[in-house]
């Protein structure tokens, strides 16, 4: 039993050693100096942070709702929230693409014939008449999503938020709801009791949820590739950089970026461990 467990630890260690021994410091630094990789690094930091902030923002009230209230459809919502976790990443990306480009049901009755964009042609999407979310965002709001950086954030958010909701629900499960009841007898509304009593107690859970969401967003690849594409200097993040560098035979650069991602992941895991130790004490 112990031998089997140590085999797994050994495997992880060997993987890291193999990566480290594959590239020299010079090769590593040369790869990281490439403008396209630096651009991907900046976009990764920005989109992961945006996805993590959005995730915590959505997961905090949703986690609270699922933890504290019993209402019709609660089990269904609880299950729906977990779907992005179990869905194959490519399917999630494809679903996002269809959501943004599929005419909404019955909207075709009131809409003009659509004009197909180059991106849609490239993706092989044939438009039917009707109200289309991406068209509306592009023409009315002036904020196109598909194959642009917002698509990266959305693809990362779709998965990261599911993990954040789970974390926040567990956080609120561990907080004594009696304190909120007492706060209500002391003059608070339900909302005030949440903000003044439950939320301050959940602060460490929120940091943990944000960190987990950030780490998940960092590793996201499939949905980004399908929904945002992998265009250099535009929608390329570190996970897609590894894929692009590999596809052009630049193994050194791919390994360098992989090591950078490992370093970022280790940093995030250390924060999580520190938070976990603090919470348990």
């Amino acid at each position: 039993m112990g031998g089997l467990s140590s085999c797994f630890v050994l495997l992880i260690l060997l993987l890291l050693i193999a990566d480290l021994s594959f590239t020299s410091t010079d090769e590593f630094l040369t790869a990281l100096r490439k403008p396209e990789i630096q651009s991907a690094f900046r976009l990764t930091l920005g989109t992961c942070t945006a996805a993590a902030v959005l995730s915590v923002w959505v997961a905090t009230p949703l986690g609270y709702l699922l933890s504290r209230f019993r209402f019709p459809g609660r089990r269904l919502i609880d299950t729906l929230v977990d779907i992005p976790v179990i869905l194959p990443p490519l399917v999630l990306g494809l679903s996002l693409l269809i959501l943004f480009h599929q005419p909404f049901p019955f909207s075709g009755l009131f809409a003009d014939a659509p004009v197909q964009t180059a991106a849609e042609k490239a993706a092989g999407l044939q438009q039917k008449p009707g109200w289309i979310l991406d068209d509306w965002l592009r023409k009315t709001v002036g904020f196109p999503v598909t194959y642009r950086w917002p698509a990266v954030v959305l693809a990362q958010f779709a998965v990261a938020c599911a993990f954040a909701v789970r974390t926040m629900k567990v956080t609120f499960d561990q907080i004594n709801p009696r304190a909120e009841d007492v706060a209500r007898t002391l003059g608070c509304s339900r909302g005030e009791a949440f903000l003044q009593v439950a939320l301050p107690q959940a602060s460490r859970g929120m940091i943990a949820a944000g960190t987990i969401a950030w780490a998940r967003a960092l590793g996201e690849f499939g949905p980004i590739l399908v929904f945002a594409g992998a265009t250099r200097f535009r929608t390329e993040v570190l996970s897609t950089t590894v894929f692009l560098e590999l596809s052009v035979g630049q193994l050194d650069a791919a390994v360098a970026v992989s090591l950078l991602m490992v370093a970022m992941a280790v940093f995030v895991l250390l924060i999580l461990r520190w938070l976990g130790a603090d919470l348990s004490s």
């Binding site: 004594n176 304190a179 009841d181 007492v182 209500r184 007898t185 002391l186």
Partner: peptide, 15 residues
């Protein structure tokens, strides 16, 4: 509502 009643409540676990 509990807030409107203005009664003091002290649960078993004190909270």
């Amino acid at each position: 509502t509990p807030a409107e009643r203005q009664l003091g409540y002290m649960p078993q676990d004190l909270a």
